[in-house]
């Protein structure tokens, strides 16, 4: 399931890495403000849960089985920011400790499997539970959120692939295949997410982050029989706007970075379409993935150097973001 190295051109992979680093940095800050000093153990255990649950194989039809992605589920159970953290850590561990998913593709995998499902899933869940604030809406919301999050993630994959993939496949075909198959996968994901959420709701409703509005006020009896009523830990629904604005901003940054590299990329679809004398031209490239490579040199800078400069700049930006967040969390 995890994208390996070589599926996307280096610039797209690195661009996605920068976006992933930024999103993880934001999530770190937000999760910490929510979970406080519980962040490390709680997120660690939830990450272990997600790792385990992804190994549960669900039978789909005779012989075939699918497995849960869990992004939307995590967002509903522990909140979108903690969810992004947990799934990202799961992906990193799978990449570095289990050699599952390319190391250069880690950013892409985090975007596709942590950020998109959590953000989309949470957004849709919020929309549904805003219509009616009760148990049924929480369960319905979970179903719809998980269902939609899967094809959206698949379509994001398709978009990235068209922009910066390395294989010449017709755009329409990519979209049809990814979208169609994943609507089916999404139904399974939605069903399982909804039942999981409802079974948690039945036993420990207070644990479902997305259903905190269902919590009742606490009543306390003491030895002398008096009753102390603690104020309900209920909060007014937060406005949806900051979340939507944030999501759009992330999407724009993503689109910006990816298309910046991809539009200049000679690989992928456009390239095949417009370039017939493919074999002869290709051998001239030093960095196949870079537009700069097309003409041998750019403003006098040799191709290879130009490529390296690009990579270095991107790494610096990502590093700067991580560093600044580290300073903040350390303080």
């Amino acid at each position: 399931m995890h994208v390996p190295d070589g599926f996307f051109t280096a610039p797209v992979a690195i661009g996605a890495g920068v976006v992933a680093a930024a999103a993880v940095a934001v999530s770190l800050k937000r999760a910490k403000s929510e979970l406080d000093d519980r962040t490390a153990p709680m997120a660690g255990l939830v990450a272990a849960f997600i790792f385990a649950v992804q190994m549960l194989n669900f039978p789909i039809a005779a012989g075939t089985s699918g497995h849960l992605l869990g992004g939307a589920l995590a967002a509903i159970l522990v909140g979108p920011y903690t969810a992004v953290l947990c799934v990202s850590v799961v992906l990193a561990v799978q990449g570095f400790f289990f050699a599952d998913g390319g190391l250069t593709a880690l950013g892409i995998n985090i975007v596709l499997m942590a950020i998109i499902p959590s953000a989309i899933g949470w957004g849709i869940f919020q929309l549904v539970t805003r219509v009616a604030r009760n148990r049924a809406s929480v369960i319905a919301g979970s179903f719809v959120a998980a269902l939609i999050s899967v094809p959206i993630a698949a379509l994001t994959f398709a978009v990235l692939f068209v922009l910066g993939g390395t294989a010449p496949i017709e755009t329409g075909a990519v979209f049809a295949a990814m979208g169609g198959v994943h609507v089916l996968v999404g139904i399974g994901e939605g069903l399982i997410t909804a039942v999981t959420v409802s079974s948690v709701l039945a036993v420990r409703p207070d644990l479902v982050y997305g259903a905190r509005f269902l919590t009742k006020p606490l009543v306390l009896k003491t030895a002398t029989g008096e009753q102390v009523v603690e104020p309900a830990r209920q909060e007014a629904p937060k406005p949806l706007r900051p979340f939507l604005v944030g999501s759009v901003a992330v999407a724009l940054v993503l689109a910006g970075i990816v298309s910046f590299f991809a539009s200049s990329s000679p690989d992928g679809l456009e390239r095949v379409a417009e370039d017939e004398g493919f074999l002869g031209a290709a051998t001239d490239h030093a960095f196949g993935g870079f537009a700069l490579a097309d003409y041998g040199d750019v403003g006098g800078i040799p191709v290879g150097i130009a490529g390296v400069i690009g990579v270095v700049i991107t790494l610096l930006v990502g590093g700067a973001i991580l560093w600044s967040v580290r300073q903040k969390t350390a303080a």
Partner: peptide
């Protein structure tokens, strides 16, 4: 000492 858990169980 009296205590109830967040889910309401005293």
């Amino acid at each position: 000492l009296a205590y109830a858990y967040p889910d309401g169980t005293q």
